[in-house]
Every structure is written in structure tokens, then in C-alpha cells.
């Protein structure tokens, strides 16, 4: 009995240590940063202390500004992700299914793909103005590529053995797509959407450089214009923290969805 209990207890302790380890380095950095700031070793007008950033966050949170900015960024990311993800899904599927379509679009896609999201901002402003449309489109482009590439890969890599079974059972193309090709591609689809959502979220800064008056990205540009470095840090940290939370959440979801793997 003792024998079976001991390793289990050790396991639990080990788990706590594992989690604690994740926090050691960030806490250390914050502590050193605060000490250096308090000791007057930092130029506080460009690098505020963690305490100052914390205070800014609290005041933003109290005035309701933080949730307001956050909500408008989140709805932009949501809309952009939906638009880009859906487009990526459709084109990725076509690319995966049809070698003909694949050849036809290879050069165009190859040239478009290396263009970064920020690079599109001036063009979208020229075409669509500085309204919501441009912002959502920039985010959509960010979400598009990971979804498109992973979908194509997933659709194309369907095991031909499954397709043979469908041929033997005289299944039509639509059934094959719905019952075999898509389910078989689910792991890649989930990966694509997961990466797409992270990219979309990251793109919010670029998008909100387009004359925004609200949004987490706006907090950053506002901080720069008003010489409020703490606000800039607040914006950056919010993006980072929300980004990692989204990723953790989706990784969990991924394991739930693909229960056969």
C-alpha cells in the first residue's frame, strides 16, 4: 500500500513543481525590473516599472476602458477570423481536391503568401478607407493563410485506402467528401484554425493602426502619441496574455475534438 501511494504523492509534488517552474522566470524578470526601476537605474519615461504598468491597468479596468477596448478588438478578431477562416477553408478544400485548380493558382498564391499583414495596411486604407472594413480585412488575411495551407494539406493527404473502401461501396462524391475526406482532415483543420486564430489575434495591432479610436492596438498607439509608455506596455501585455490563453484553450479543445487519434 505504501508502495503504491508513494509514487502518486511524488507525482503530485512533481506536478506542482512543474507548474511553479513556469512562473519562476517571469516573476524573476518582473522583480529585477521593479528593483532596477526603484533604484533609479531605468529611464522611467520610456520604460515604466511593473508597478506603474499595474496601476495603469487597474485604472483602465476601473474606468471600464480596458473591457471596452478589449471588446472592440475581440469583435474585430472574431469577424476577421470568421471571414479569413471560411475563405481559407473553401480555397484550401478546392486546392486539396483539384490538382487542376492547384496548378492554376500556384503562382498567384505563392506571390501573395509572403506579404505580411502590416504591408497590406496602406493598400486597404486606399481601397476601403479607415473604417471597420479595412481592419477586419487585415485580420482576415492573417487568419486566411494558416487555415488555407493546413486545409489543403489535410484534404490532400486522405488515405487512399479509405477512398478505395468508398469506391467498393459505390459512394458518391459528396458522401465521400462529407464522411471521409473532411473527417480524415479534422486534425489538420483544427491545427489550421488554431494557428489562424492566433495570427488573427496578433494582427489586431496592425489592424488598429488604421485610424482606430478603440481597441487594444489603439491603446498602444495612444500610449505612443501621449508619451504614456505604461499604456503601451498595457496594450502589448494584453495581446500577449490573451494570445497565450487562446492557445491553451484551443489546444485543450483540439484534444477533445479528435478523440479517435
Amino acid at each position: 500500500m505504501n508502495k503504491s501511494e508513494r509514487p502518486r504523492r511524488n507525482e503530485k509534488v512533481g506536478q506542482i513543481i512543474d507548474y511553479a517552474l513556469f512562473l519562476v522566470a517571469p516573476l524573476f524578470v518582473i522583480a529585477v525590473w521593479q528593483v532596477l526601476g526603484d533604484g533609479g537605474h531605468l529611464n522611467l519615461s520610456i520604460l515604466p516599472t511593473p508597478q506603474k504598468i499595474m496601476e495603469t491597468m487597474v485604472s483602465y479596468a476601473k474606468s471600464g476602458l480596458l473591457s471596452e477596448h478589449f471588446a472592440s478588438s475581440f469583435s474585430r478578431v472574431g469577424a476577421g477570423f470568421l471571414l479569413g477562416g471560411l475563405t481559407g477553408l473553401i480555397f484550401g478544400t478546392l486546392l486539396g481536391l483539384s490538382p487542376w485548380f492547384n496548378r492554376l493558382s500556384a503562382v498567384i498564391l505563392g506571390v501573395l503568401r509572403p506579404i505580411p499583414m502590416v504591408g497590406l495596411v496602406p493598400l486597404f486604407i486606399l481601397w476601403f478607407g479607415i473604417g471597420e472594413k479595412s481592419k477586419i480585412l487585415v485580420i482576415a488575411v492573417g487568419a486566411l493563410w494558416p487555415v488555407l495551407l493546413n486545409t489543403e494539406q489535410g484534404i490532400r493527404s486522405t488515405d487512399s485506402k479509405y477512398l478505395e473502401v468508398a469506391r467498393l461501396l459505390k459512394k458518391d462524391r459528396f458522401t465521400i467528401l462529407r464522411r471521409i475526406i473532411f473527417p480524415a482532415a479534422v486534425p489538420e483543420l483544427v491545427t489550421g484554425f488554431r494557428l489562424g486564430l492566433s495570427t488573427a489575434w496578433r494582427g489586431v495591432v496592425a489592424a488598429e493602426m488604421i485610424g482606430a479610436t478603440r481597441g487594444v492596438g489603439y491603446i498602444i498607439s495612444y500610449g505612443r502619441e501621449m508619451s504614456l509608455p505604461a499604456a503601451m506596455f498595457l496594450g502589448l501585455l494584453t495581446i500577449g496574455v490573451v494570445g497565450i490563453l487562446i492557445d491553451i484553450l484551443l489546444a485543450r479543445l483540439q484534444n477533445k475534438i479528435i478523440k479517435w487519434a
Partner: peptide, 20 residues
């Protein structure tokens, strides 16, 4: 000339769909 429902086939691997 092509598969027909009158002829069924089974392979060495079961070829079941793991998601069903």
C-alpha cells in the same frame, strides 16, 4: 469494369474509419 455492390472486398487491414 468497376466496383459493384454485388462484390464485396475485405483487406488485410480492416480499413475502418477511426472517427466512426
Amino acid at each position: 469494369k468497376e466496383p459493384t455492390l454485388e462484390i464485396g472486398m475485405i483487406f488485410q487491414e480492416s480499413r475502418l474509419f477511426p472517427w466512426l
